[in-house]
């Protein structure tokens, strides 16, 4: 499948800022089943951009803007060719061993409620992949899809207490749940053609990957109740959504900020 992606992020500040420093995780990389055909990052003001990698091996771009600045738009767009591989990730740039992803973070700390839910969801399963699929489907059934922008800082425990959940919330619960089974799990940020169907989305997509010995990392999207396939483009992985955030920023100045995000993913028209 050839996917065309357009992702705009706009920040507006109530008073001009003296300086902006942001770390962008907005660059997908090639894997065996994902080929980046074209990719552009554009910023609407004078900025210095520096490529690099974070500790998880994700491609990052440091963005430095000297003020005064009252708004900034960061746009990425491009085309990615994908194959289906039943959700199994092949040929990704891996720098940390699966064992690291057993570690809980404040956003992905499991509670007794999550552990109980997990235990009953997977009880009938036999092999690990089957159990994880059951967990994925159970979480999909457990929540009503929340189409709003994800709430920054909402933990898996908080999300689990609610009925509505964003893809990010569901992924966090999945990760916390998988770890209670002793399965390494991580957060993936990226794009999906199927995320909630709509044309314009208020955030990049987020799902989970779990490590299955002998198979490798397997992608699960509890918001869609399926494994991530050729409709998905992986961009960054981390222990939780905060670590894989598309934009982590810091600004020097008073006042408030407002953020607008618009993401479109469509089959390329060639």
């Amino acid at each position: 499948m050839r996917l065309s992606i357009d992702h705009h992020t706009i920040y507006r500040f109530s008073v001009p800022q003296g300086r902006l420093t942001q770390m962008l995780r907005l660059t997908p990389e090639d894997t065996h089943d994902q080929t980046v055909a074209s990719w552009h990052l554009h910023v609407d003001c004078d900025a210095r951009l520096r490529p690099g990698r974070d500790g998880f091996g994700n491609k990052v771009t440091m963005l430095y803007v000297a003020g005064p600045i009252d708004s900034i738009e960061i746009a990425v767009s491009g085309e990615v060719l994908t194959n289906s591989a039943d959700g199994v990730v092949h040929g990704a740039h891996e720098v940390l061993p699966p064992a690291l992803f057993l570690r809980a973070t404040p956003l992905t700390l499991a509670t007794a409620a999550i552990a109980d839910f997990t235990a009953s969801a997977v009880s009938a399963g036999t092999d690990l992949v089957g159990r994880l699929h059951r967990l994925n489907l159970a979480l999909n059934a457990r929540f009503v899809a929340d189409r709003d922008r994800p709430v920054t800082g909402r933990t898996a425990a908080q999300a689990f207490a609610l009925d509505r959940a964003t893809p990010r919330d569901m992924a966090h619960v999945f990760i916390a749940a998988a770890r209670t089974l002793g399965v390494p799990a991580r957060y993936v940020s990226g794009y999906s053609r199927f995320a909630f169907g709509g044309e314009h989305r208020p955030a990049p997509h987020g799902w989970a990957e779990a490590y299955v010995a002998g198979l490798g990392w397997v992608a699960f999207d509890p918001s869609a109740g399926r494994s991530a396939d050729e409709a998905y483009v992986r961009v960054a992985v981390a222990l939780d959504a905060a670590g894989a955030a598309a934009v982590a920023g810091s600004r020097l100045g008073e006042g408030d900020e407002e953020m607008d995000v618009d993401v479109t993913v469509a089959p390329a028209s060639d």
Binding site: D54, F56, L96, A99, G243
Partner: peptide
């Protein structure tokens, strides 16, 4: 890997 003092943020 389970130790919080091992910082994946600066691995590599």
């Amino acid at each position: 890997f389970g130790n919080a003092q091992f910082r994946p943020e600066i691995a590599g």
